[in-house]
Amino acid sequence: MPTVTIDGRRVTVREGAYVLEAARLAGARIPALCHHEAVEPIGACRLCVVDIWKPGWDADSFRLVASCLYPVEEGLVVHTATPRVMETRRVALDLLLARCPETPLVRDLAREYGIEETTYRKRENPDDCILCGLCTRICDKVGPAAISTQSRGVLREVAPPFFEAPPDCIGCGACAEVCPTGHIKVTEDGFTRTIWGKTFEMLRCPSCGRAYLTRAQAEWMAGRGMPVEPLCDSCKRRRTAEVAASLGRPR
């Protein structure tokens, strides 16, 4: 297990970890808007930049990298708040604020870095998407890969193929769950769930009666031989607790 130095503190992390994980372990505060444990990092928001130094480099030679996908290695020295790091974050946040001037998450983070109003020209008719790509990555990971990013540059956006209701979407809601800004809208009325312009029939939890899973997802999972959870999450938790209690000591 490699030992690395974060802002002067030595920490030992698991093999294969990225610098962000090590830095957080060491107590550093690093913004990371496109990062999520459940999916592979892509380094899109660039807020998690840090300065690194490797054994063998010239003493004053540092490199700015995205900590969310820079793999740790023995002897790595990391500085999480050098002037260059802070300035890079400030410019990126300032830019994000121009893109999403009304988005609370962005506003709050920008304020933390001393930015109340963006220096740049605000986007007209802004939405809350920061293009972190978490939704598409989680959807790929769940399996359907129903949505993707389309177009390039500033025209880039997350969308289903051909901008129509995504044929492959199973309504699992994972994308909305993971979206840091709440840009993806899900509505439920107890019988159906609507997401990406597509409406799904809900299955009910046999224990509490709550709508907890779309039929499409249950069928999709069954079709792939995945076990479909028969209970909703809270009933499942309660059931587990009861079992644990009956066994005596919860573990």
């Binding site: 660039r46 410019v91 293009l131 990013t149 177009s151 390039r152 540059g153 500033v154 880039r156």
Partner: peptide
């Protein structure tokens, strides 16, 4: 610009 990362995508526009 492919538009993946913030400094390039938003930076070039600004």
């Amino acid at each position: 610009s492919c538009g993946k990362c913030v400094p390039c995508r938003e930076g070039l526009l600004q």
